[in-house]
Design a protein around this nucleic acid. Structure first.
Lengths: 195, 195
DNA sequence: GTGTCAATTGACATGGTGTCAAGTAGAAGG
DNA sequence: CCTTCTACTTGACACCATGTCAATTGACAC
């Protein structure tokens, strides 16, 4: 992507990532990130216009490191619609725990910051495209349960895969990740796939 | 409850409620609320120790005005477990649109404010008790679907009834409220009630 | 009148974001 | 060796929101 990578920029992104990692305080002030990165607070503003943009770039950086796009794409190789939906759910939910800290921060900021809102909505729209593609394959295979329109099925799948839903059951109720994945897969299979 | 109601306090609560009503900016600064209430900013601090507490009291005020507790209790009069769960879902979801603005604000504040977090967790715990009671009646009637433990069924019902889930499908996807209620009822019936 | 209570007024401390200007260290190149 | 460019640092500052404080006003009661 960017041939001219700046080591300072990398340090900052890494520090921001690390500070947002735990579900911890999430407060992560600019000065905290600067200290963690071992640079001055002002150096942050040399690389990112503001706090929001720094966090947005942090998520993009994380996406790149994990290769999310590729992993979500892999689910397209599944043959049947049902298998594809299953794979998509697994791939997405595998990523959620890793991105949760930053995601939550962006969601919170989106409440008062238009840029954060736009960035987050964009990410969720991307994810919804994956849902739509999976549901489209169900339709192609005549597997979509009759009580849902294609659009409605996409909407509910998208909602079940939301970060906040994961947060409620895994973080607040203490469900193990594996059980959670199995639960969502079961939900999707039984509600969306025709018997 | 409080025999000595202060008209100024009421004005402030009403103004806060009104300002948080729309999913709008949600910014609602203390000065905004003061202006809307027609009092000085400092008057707010004469009645509430801080912004968080003001919003917490606003939710309690709203609860009282709507008589939520009573409406949720009514669902207990249903005879079968299934009917009770249905009634509980309907009663709770009828309240969600009304409380959404304040709820979202509190959820956002909970991210950085321990008091807000405690208050919100408390409300959610109360709601979960309602879920637990409904599921307990399913168990009593031998209606709980076999693949869920009583606790897990409570957890998932609680998650499906979450404010953020409502937000995703009603606000972001544009589902009509009636369809949303029907959807959650259908979900609960087909996933939690034994055939 | 005097006291009391609620509210107003205006000033201020605090803490975070974002801006600005001047200074500095180091590499590149004459 | 000296210049120059670039990236970074330093320290100061404006801004804005919360929360605090002290002095003042105005109404009502006794």
């Amino acid at each position: 992507m960017s041939s001219a990578i700046s080591p300072t920029r990398e340090k900052i992104l890494k520090a921001a990532w690390q500070l947002l990692e735990p579900q911890s305080g999430s407060a992560a002030r600019m000065s905290d990130i600067a200290k963690a990165a071992g640079v001055s607070r002002q150096a942050l503003y040399l690389h990112f216009p503001n706090r929001t943009e720094l966090f947005i770039e942090t998520t993009k950086h994380m996406d790149a490191v994990f290769g999310v796009q590729e992993k979500l794409m892999e689910s397209r190789t599944a043959t049947t619609g049902e298998a594809r939906m299953d794979a998509f759910i697994r791939a997405w939910l595998a990523y959620v725990p890793k991105m949760f800290g930053i995601a939550k921060t962006l969601i919170t900021m989106a409440e008062t910051d238009a840029d954060a809102a736009e960035a987050w909505d964009g990410r969720m729209a991307d994810m919804k495209e994956g849902c739509a593609a999976a549901v489209a394959d169900l339709v192609r295979d005549g597997q979509l349960a009759p009580q849902y329109s294609q659009e409605q099925a996409t909407d509910v799948l998208w909602a079940w895969l939301s970060i906040t839903q994961w947060e409620l059951l895994v973080l607040k109720c203490g469900w193990p990740q594996t059980r959670y994945v199995a639960h969502v897969q079961d939900l999707a299979r039984r509600m969306l796939v025709a018997p």
